[in-house]
């Protein structure tokens, strides 16, 4: 047998118990920050907004008229409001982020209002669904005491943040009989005050650039992973201007596909870092 004493003797860092307690607190919804980790001035927030009809931010602001944030004085994303409630039908853990300090008050107000509305819509939908499940359960003879409350979670992450760009991811997660997750991605160019699409990022040839990059990445996958892909995909058709993407910590665009768009459910939600042609 392999001697596993080097494994058993792996040194346990002093911070482990703090990390664990913090994780337990985070996981049970008590607080969301990681105090032991040095948080840089840039806290990337990912906001996803999939309701394209509300994306009416006009790009018509002249750059000269806006005061750009000074380097180091970067846009901040903070938790505006948190909901943690529980009853016999559901429990809710929701966090609403807001942006501030961009130097553009109108933009901030618009974006923040949009985020609030988006999250409120998600919560309303989830609560209505939870009530439906509960009513159906009771109507078919179930004992209310046996009903397993529906879990509703809304949270965000900041994917990328500089003085020019904010890339946010908001996810809405609901567990009932099956898990239900919606991801929203929202990348904002603070200079042009525009919500960016893939076309904005890569230019008119965006379809080809993105599709080629994805194809190259798939070639590096193992045969097992490749087998999970559907056989009749047209990448060019799937890559529209509305295709979800975010900027990762290196400032690269990462394209996101929903479950079942590219592959069977076991593959999850594939993401691809897009490399630009040299």
């Amino acid at each position: 047998m392999i001697d596993h004493s080097p494994y058993d003797n792996i040194q346990i860092p002093q911070q482990l118990s703090n990390v664990v307690e913090n994780a337990i607190a985070c996981g049970t919804g008590k607080h969301r920050r990681r105090p032991w980790k040095a948080v840089a001035a840039c806290v990337p927030a990912t906001m996803a907004a999939c309701l394209v009809l509300l994306l009416n931010l006009s790009p018509s602001f002249a750059a000269g008229a806006c005061s750009l944030p000074v380097v180091g004085d970067v846009c901040r994303i903070f938790v505006f409001r948190e909901y943690h409630t529980q009853d016999e039908i559901k429990y809710i853990d929701a966090v609403i982020p807001q942006i501030e300090n961009t130097g553009k008050t109108q933009l901030e107000q618009r974006v923040n209002l949009y985020i609030q509305q988006l999250i409120q819509n998600c919560l309303d939908e989830s609560e209505a669904r939870a009530k439906e499940y509960y009513d159906a359960f009771v109507a078919t003879g179930g004992d209310p005491a046996d009903f397993h409350p529906i879990g509703i979670t809304i949270d965000y992450e900041v994917k990328y943040l500089t003085s020019q760009y904010v890339s946010l991811h908001i996810y809405h997660y609901e567990t009932a009989i099956a898990a239900y997750q919606t991801d929203y991605y929202y990348t904002l160019d603070l200079e042009s005050e525009k919500v960016l699409t893939l076309k904005d990022w890569f230019g008119n040839d965006y379809k080809q650039i993105v599709a080629d990059s994805i194809r190259n990445t798939i070639l590096t996958w193992s045969p097992e992973d490749r087998r999970e892909l559907w056989t009749d995909i047209s990448l060019e058709d799937l890559i529209t201007e509305q295709r979800s993407f975010y900027l990762n910590e290196d400032g690269q665009a990462v394209v996101v596909f929903d479950k079942y768009e590219l592959a069977c459910g076991a593959a999850g939600r594939p993401e691809f870092v897009i490399s630009q042609p040299s």
Binding site: L16, V19, V20, N22, A23, I24, C26, G27, T28, R34, D93, G151, T153, Y173, T175
Partner: peptide, 11 residues
């Protein structure tokens, strides 16, 4: 360790 604990508790 941190992220798996958080995920586990949420799920």
């Amino acid at each position: 360790v941190h992220s798996s604990i958080v995920k586990a508790l949420q799920k």
